[in-house]
Amino acid sequence: MIPASFDYERASSLDEALSLLAQGGEDARPLAGGHSLLPLMRLRLARPSLLVDIGGLEELRGVRSDGDSVVIGALTTHHEVAGASELTGGSGLLATVAEGIGDPQVRHRGTLGGSVAHADPASDLPAALLALDAEVTLAGRDGERSVAAADFFVGPFMSAAADGEIVTGVRVPKREGWGSAYRKFQRRAQDWAIVGVAAVVNWTEDGIAGAVIGLTNMGGTPLRAPGVEAALAGASEKAQILAAASKVSELETPPADENASSEYRLHLAQVLIARAVAEAAGCPGMQRD
């Protein structure tokens, strides 16, 4: 329960952080809120040689509106995301999701960028970013680049970020006029999701004009459910939503662990998709509970 020994540097600028990481080599890791990395270090499952503390880089903190998008700095805490008034329309999903992460202590220390960089398939934010077609911005010694969320998460705890790159933030389309919901199923309030479903829905008088589904912990990365999304188009009744939700079975078999078998996980996803879509649609006739 005590980490193996490591060196520690506190960066005073992004450039300094990047050069410290470069000097530290492949075992150097950036440290933000520490809520993913430090537990692994305490179990000695992670043994970085150098931690570069980027927690003081104010330029990476904050939420701002930029036209049709919202830009959120990597060091913005979950608590700050949960309260961000800039997150309107479908992008309000991020605030909903952030509000349900961990407990108040976690939400006040844990950061959006840290959660994204950690790429835990059981984390809530990645699926929400995927459902919102967000872009992840990265800084490296060669400059900045953007990667679509769909390309960023490449496997369990693996992302498209290269060694020495730092996640600087995300850019999220607002999707004005769309509704959203996140249904997270867990045993205890502070647990990771057994299954989480993010739904972003454009509800019109004619029913669902567009729907995006992001799934947490249904595979090695956050997943979209294209079959479900296609089947939701034009749906206007509960029965149609239920039928569309069943298309989640077209995805690859989800993982099994001590909390849920694959079969149960798939069943949960189906139930939660129907509930999330109904809630996101915001139409009384669609509500199921």
Binding site: L43, R187, R188, A189, Q190, D191, E258, N259
Partner: peptide, 16 residues
């Protein structure tokens, strides 16, 4: 021991 930490040995909190 599969449930070797509080991550998967589920001690409930007041919230439950």
């Amino acid at each position: 021991l599969e449930t070797a930490s509080m991550v998967n040995y589920l001690v409930p909190s007041a919230a439950e």
